[in-house]
């Protein structure tokens, strides 16, 4: 009796895990389908009489990229100063505070700039994307596009994805520059070296590889933010509340995906 009960409990747990796995695989499958379809329309849309409109791409770039510049500049500068303070404090224990620039150069370009940019864009644009697609679905605007013979992936999804792919690396580069500059200003006053000398040290350590490592990751973050926003938005059900739910879900999922991907890269590439 006891035994069968625990056996059924085990079966139930296994079933639950199984279901969660299937749901997870299904969701990733949907991401792949959306990515495939968006790529298809971007490449072949013109041949089908439905090109991806540059005007729409620029509008998205404005929203996703240009309007995010102030917050990304401020946040990366803050992180840069924080890195400098922490680095000098730690290295002073060994009397090696002069080597703080190498730490700043590598952690900023390889880790912090792509990460902070990804998280901020996920919060600003990933959520907006989910909310927009969700609202449009609820209001039958997606159906309306379909019956007008306008493919919603081509019309809505492809411009947002293209804009993310361009703007997230661009913003990451901006974060690299402002982060390093802000750190430099702090280092200058704390260690009493000139700014040109600081930059010279930075460029001694920093080569293209480090920059490309960070920018490459930001490219992947861009894809993750876009797909997670869109797939969550289009899975909406249950009116305005549903839109709130999928928006939150999109942000949490995107930020988690960014952090996990980042860790994976550190493990595989950096180690």
């Amino acid at each position: 009796m006891q035994k069968t009960e625990s056996a059924t409990a085990l079966a139930r747990t296994l079933e639950r895990i199984g279901r969660a796995c299937v749901a997870g695989v299904e969701e990733v499958g949907t991401w792949a389908a959306v990515l495939g379809e968006a790529t298809f329309w971007t490449v072949a849309g013109r041949a089908f009489g439905q090109p991806v409109r540059m005007a729409a791409v620029f509008r998205e770039m404005m929203d996703i990229g240009i309007r995010a510049i102030p917050i990304i500049a401020v946040m990366s500068a803050t992180i840069g100063v924080m890195l400098a303070i922490q680095g000098i404090y730690t290295l002073r224990i060994f009397g090696a505070e002069w080597s703080v620039t190498i730490g700043i150069a590598l952690s900023m370009t390889r880790e912090f700039a792509p990460m902070i940019t990804g998280i901020l864009v996920a919060g600003r644009s990933g959520s907006a994307l989910a909310a927009r697609v969700g609202t449009m679905k609820i209001n039958q605007e997606i159906d309306a596009l379909d019956v007008m013979g306008i493919n919603p992936v081509r019309f809505l999804v492809a411009p947002a994805l293209i804009a993310l792919l361009v703007m997230v690396p661009a913003l990451t580069f901006l974060a690299d520059v402002t982060g390093l500059l802000a750190a430099g200003l702090y280092v200058r006053s704390a260690l009493d070296i000139s700014l040109p000398a600081y930059w010279q040290q930075i460029f001694e350590f920093l080569n293209l590889n480090h920059l490309v490592h960070g920018l490459g990751k930001s490219f992947i973050f861009a894809v993750l933010i876009g797909l997670i926003g869109i797939v969550n938005g289009s899975s909406v059900s249950g009116g305005a509340e549903g839109v709130g739910r999928v928006t939150t879900r999109a942000v949490v999922q995107a930020i988690s995906a960014i952090i996990v991907t980042d860790m994976f890269f550190a493990f595989v590439v950096t180690r």
């Binding site: 089908f48 009489g49 039958q140 007008m148 013979g149």
Partner: peptide, 23 residues
């Protein structure tokens, strides 16, 4: 197929329940 369906739908007009205008 996709292309034929889109062509057919261009000969439809649909007024949805809530209007479904793009906000």
């Amino acid at each position: 197929g996709t292309r034929k369906m889109a062509a057919l739908r261009r000969r439809f007009g649909v007024a949805f329940q809530g209007g479904a205008l793009f906000s």
